[in-house]
Simulated scan of single mutants.
Amino acid sequence: MTTMNRTIRRLAAGALALLAGTAATAQERYPSRPIRWVVPYLAGTSPDNTVRVVAEAMGTLLKQNIVVENKPGAAGNLGAQTAARAAPDGYTWVYSGSPMATSMRMYKRPGFDVMKDFEHVGRIGVSDLTLVTHAGSGFSTVQQLVERARKQPGQLMYASGGIGSPAHLGAALMLRAAGISATHIPYKGATESTNAVIARQVDFTLAITSVALPHLQSQRLVPLAVSAAQRHPRLPEVPTLAEAGVPVSLTSIGGLSVPAGTPPAIVKLLSDSLRTVLAQPETRARIEALGGAVAPSTPAEYTEALRAELAHAEQMLAAAGLQPE
């Protein structure tokens, strides 16, 4: 055998070994190692609490550890950027939703594209906001707050979880609809902005209802209205903003997404698994106890819901008179 023939045979054997290794990798059971679920918000926030409930249930179903990683900052943009740049192998997930869509319109350079950089696995739920003030504010109705703001233009202060957050946009819409003004004080997240109201650093906020509930039950916060079109089942005595005379309706969706390019078989497995755990009575009860509403969907339905959120964000920014930063 000539040197040339031996070289060719070695190259061929190497190629076959490489192909065999690639095939073995392709056939590797998924998931075969721990999964990272990026939450673009602080620990203890409504998205974080919801993700931990779902992660526990999905980890049991998939027989793999799911590690929740909080990556807050820039109204959720830092976490979204982290997930968008991850390998599309099914081992990095992100909690996505309305704020990601809003960031696409609120920021000139959010650092990601919610429709191009992700495969959207499915919606988890829908949440609303509650207009709350501290126990010593003297406000017990929306109208009382509105009247004070008219007498003292710009002097009332409201908190939010960051520029472009649902609390920020919701409050801006509410103020515009009521024809009043107030000063915006952004915080790092919904928990911090709610705590700022309790500490009387600000006058009010539109808190995610699940975050506000424990403080409403302890009477450290006073509920004035909810942002959805219907009253919240845990707060049946609290009117909607529309019922209180301010024609504003606002809800926020959240769900599971993975980096674009993730294999369709993995996306389908995750979608099927997500809907399976959301149908479990125990999982649903735990999410509802946090104040959320379970609303599962297919990947296509969630993708279209986020596309609709983009259009809604444009309308909200225009209605609130806000410009992209």
Score class of each variant (00 low, 15 high):
Met1Pro: 10
Met1Gly: 15
Met4Asn: 08
Gly14Asn: 08
Ala15His: 00
Leu16Tyr: 00
Ala17Cys: 13
Gly21Ser: 11
Ala23Val: 13
Thr25Trp: 14
Ala26Leu: 14
Gln27Leu: 15
Arg33Tyr: 06
Pro34Gln: 07
Pro34Gly: 05
Val39Thr: 10
Thr45Arg: 04
Ser46Thr: 11
Pro47Ile: 07
Val51Asp: 12
Gly59Met: 07
Lys63His: 14
Gln64Trp: 00
Val68Lys: 02
Asn70Arg: 09
Gly73Met: 06
Asn77Val: 04
Ala80Gly: 01
Gln81Leu: 06
Thr82Trp: 02
Ala83Gln: 09
Arg85Ala: 15
Arg85Asp: 10
Val94Cys: 04
Val94Trp: 02
Ala101Gln: 08
Lys108Trp: 02
Lys108Ser: 13
Arg109Phe: 14
Arg109Asp: 15
Pro110Ile: 07
Gly111Val: 10
Asp117Val: 03
His120Phe: 12
Arg123Glu: 11
Ile124Met: 14
Asp128Arg: 09
Leu131Thr: 09
Gly136Ser: 13
Gly136Thr: 13
Ser140Phe: 02
Ser140Ile: 01
Gln144Ile: 06
Glu147Val: 11
Arg150Gly: 14
Gln152Ser: 13
Pro153Thr: 08
Gln155Val: 05
Ser160Asn: 03
Gly162Ser: 07
Ser165Thr: 12
Ser165Val: 01
Pro166Phe: 07
Pro166Leu: 06
Leu169Tyr: 09
Gly170Val: 04
Gly170Ser: 07
Arg176Met: 03
Ala177Arg: 15
Ala182Tyr: 07
Thr183Arg: 14
His184Ser: 02
Tyr187Gly: 01
Tyr187Ile: 01
Gly189Ala: 05
Glu192His: 03
Thr194Pro: 07
Gln201Asp: 11
Thr205Glu: 13
Thr209Leu: 11
Ser210Lys: 08
Ser210Thr: 09
Leu216Gln: 07
Gln219Ser: 14
Leu221Phe: 05
Leu224Trp: 11
Val226Glu: 04
Arg234Gly: 01
Val246Leu: 05
Val248Met: 06
Thr251Gly: 00
Gly255Tyr: 09
Pro263Phe: 05
Pro263Ser: 04
Leu269Val: 05
Leu270Arg: 03
Glu282Asp: 15
Arg284Glu: 09
Arg284His: 05
Ala289Ser: 13
Ala289His: 08
Gly292Pro: 00
Ala293Gln: 14
Val294Thr: 10
Pro296Phe: 12
Glu301Ile: 06
Arg307Ala: 15
Leu310Thr: 08
Ala311Leu: 12
His312Ile: 09
Gln315Arg: 15
Ala318Ser: 12
Ala318Met: 02
Pro324Tyr: 09
